[in-house]
Design a binder for these strands. Sequence first.
DNA 1: GGCAGTCAAGTACGC
DNA 2: GCGTACTTGACTGCC
Length: 300
Amino acid sequence: MRIGYPCINRSIGCKSSKTFRLNSYSETRLREIVNNNLKCLMKILKYNKKNHMLFFRITSDLVPFASHPVCEFDWQGYFSNEFGSIGDYVRENDMRISMHPDQFNVLNSKRKDVVENSVRELIYHAEVLDTMGLDRTHKIQIHVGGMYRDKKGSMARFQKRYKSLDIRIKKRLVIENDHGMYNTSDCLDISAKTGIPVLFDFFHESLNPSGMSLKKSLKLIEGTWKRVDGIPMVDYSHHHSNPASKKHAETIKIRDFHKFLVYTRPYDMDIMLEIKDKEKSAIRAVELARKDSRFLIVHR
DNA sequence: GGCAGTCAAGTACGC
DNA sequence: GCGTACTTGACTGCC
């Protein structure tokens, strides 16, 4: 079990998701920004290691506009040393990385241009992890997509598109239950037909229940992760202080998290805390999880 | 220097 | 049909 948080660290004073506007695009600008982002990413990982947080979601903005036609820059070649060092550091410290393309990524869209853009964006995400030299336990998570008033048809379209994807994407792609359309059971159905692992989002399950118990969900989900995929990844959050909101919580409720750890025994998993105050909550979660026999400590 | 408008991209839903 | 929520700040032009 590793504990992590997504994309942004508010304690160390730099951002690995610095970007710029498309109309001010230039190769020089891109080089400057990517250089900044990679340096900051390394700082974040070192901070994380010090605090026993071995799971981290890398921002999709690491290389701005990488999947946009405007970008013809060979960022993999130019920054191969920096990407390599980050990958080495991740491996040496037994860390795990995930990435989560944002809502514009809709593989089952009915629009051809949307699908093409999504595939390009997925290739970019896969290339980030490949350039770091990371194996296929480091994943890219997406949602199934839209419903288009025909859930079955839309699920079938996802499956068809998934099967035709480039192997670089396929070996890393996992699907996550969302908060309103495709729940855990739907994702398991798709997994049964495609072999794609299912990433369980505990908060989304509460908003869009599958009807299964937590234990049953975890048992079925564990079965979708093959040995080469690593142990399951789980997203954890709970309700915002305004219960009507579907937003993530501002800070972790440590008692609830403790219950979650107890209920999920003996299933092993890496837990991504999708909580607004990021590393602050993650540090508190680590304090608690360290007492759990599943928790992974690296002594180096 | 500070402010407000805007930013590559999708979909669903409430009014 | 339009604005807003997902999220999410921070870039940029204008004063």
